[in-house]
Amino acid sequence: MGVNTVSIATKIYQTLFRRTSTFALTIVVGTLFFERAFDEGTGYIFDRINAGKQYKDLKKQLELRAAKEE
């Protein structure tokens, strides 16, 4: 813990957390970004685990097959 990190933490506290109005706003905006990132992250994990098994993969296969028949 250098002096620098402490000062950043203090700055965050003073600008965002100290007043209730900005604290509530931080929570609302933070939720927005957190939820987006969390959904994308877990979705990526799920797609990695189930690579090639889901409907989007089947759809690509079907399109390939349809293109081959034409």
């Binding site: 799920f46 685990i49 189930n50 098994k53 889901q54 409907y55 993969d57 089947l58 296969q61």
Partner: peptide
């Protein structure tokens, strides 16, 4: 636990 159905 986290495996999807094989749609094919």
């Amino acid at each position: 636990l986290l495996s999807a159905l094989d749609r094919a």
